[in-house]
Simulated scan of single mutants.
Amino acid sequence: MRAFIFPGQGSQKVGMGSELAEASVAAREVFGEVDEALKQKLSALMRDGPDDQLTLTENAQPAIMANAIATLRVLEQDFGVKLAEKGGCVAGHSLGEYAALCAVGAFGLADTARLLKLRGQAMQAAVPLGEGTMAVLLGADIDQAKALAEAAAQGQVCEVANDNDPSQVVISGHTAAIERAVGLVKDFGIKRGMILNVSAPFHSSLMAPAAARMAEALGETPPAAFTLPIYANVTAARVDDPEEERALLVEQVTGRVRWRESVLAMRADGVESFVELGGKVLGPMVGRIDKDAQVASLVTMADLEAFAKEIA
């Protein structure tokens, strides 16, 4: 069985999607529809920058989704590889869960773009700039990260945000607490801690105001039935029911991205290969989680052509 997976924030870069847009009508149609939905020339920002504007979470979130869905549409329309025929399930990392849901028909493209724009704005507004941040812990497993976060909190918020793979965990919370945690890494047998260049403490309890806004938005635009099951971030388990998934998307704003466990759950359920669309971030993570898993990361036209030939 094959899983199609969709990257999250941090995979954006100036120039993303440009080659696909030049080569494919299918890609240009995706970028045009997203621009129209947002009443914003997001495609121009993706193509030309500036980088500091693309990195803003309210722009990065819909941009990463648009690039992933454009990659999927090119694969389907230009190379004849249909996700519903060649895939057994989908999953996405953080905002990538929305891209995954769009890919399987739970949300239309325009609605997905608007939801992610709002999600980015809500997350940014939840905590005043400078009061919260995140850090990546390298050479840390989940138990080490939990122990470190608990020790560093000292009455503030310091929580595990992303359990990415066996050697990389991200923590999130109040800036002072995260800085304390980075200073304590050696005491917990962790190789290195680095503050991330992010504008808010995503996937922590400080995001509660953003979760409330997303609950309202998803009440107005709930996911419809999807053509393939999705593995949800916060449960690392298969979901088939749209109403269950709606509730999990709200919980995801403050909850941990359990990516390592999600990959292991998919493997246990029979997934042998993972195909990342629109990025080269999740593929390496999957390889570190399970060295026996087959992995492909599709970004360029050449990537898509080679993949289509391989599975023909």
Rank of each mutant, 00 (worst) to 15 (best):
F79W: 12
P7V: 01
A296E: 03
E216C: 02
L264K: 15
R28M: 09
M301L: 11
A268F: 01
G132N: 14
G155H: 13
A306I: 04
M194V: 13
G173D: 10
Q154K: 15
Q154H: 12
K13S: 15
R73Q: 11
K280C: 04
G17D: 02
T254P: 04
E22C: 08
V239E: 13
L282G: 07
F4Y: 14
K41R: 15
W259P: 00
A176W: 03
Q154I: 06
V182T: 13
S18Q: 14
T112K: 05
M194A: 08
R2Y: 04
V90Q: 00
V185W: 13
A296Q: 11
S204T: 01
A70W: 06
L72M: 01
F79E: 10
P242T: 11
F202T: 06
V170D: 06
A296W: 02
I171P: 03
G120Y: 13
A145M: 08
G139M: 00
G88A: 12
S199R: 02
M266G: 09
A215K: 12
E29P: 02
T300G: 08
V136F: 08
A211R: 00
G130M: 12
M266N: 08
E29M: 04
K41V: 04
D165W: 08
D35K: 14
P284G: 10
I289R: 08
E131F: 15
I64E: 00
N233E: 06
G139D: 00
A100P: 01
G96R: 03
K13Y: 14
E131I: 06
A225D: 14
D48F: 13
D141I: 07
G120R: 08
D241A: 14
A147H: 02
E216T: 15
L115M: 11
I195P: 07
L42A: 10
L298F: 07
I190W: 11
Q124C: 07
S273Q: 02
V182N: 05
L95R: 09
A70E: 05
E76Q: 14
N67T: 14
G8I: 06
Y98S: 01
V170T: 05
R2Q: 09
L218G: 11
M207V: 06
A268C: 04
G80D: 05
E150W: 06
N233H: 02
Q294V: 09
C158E: 11
E29V: 12
A70G: 05
I178C: 00
T57N: 15
V275N: 00
L95Q: 15
A125I: 09
L101G: 04
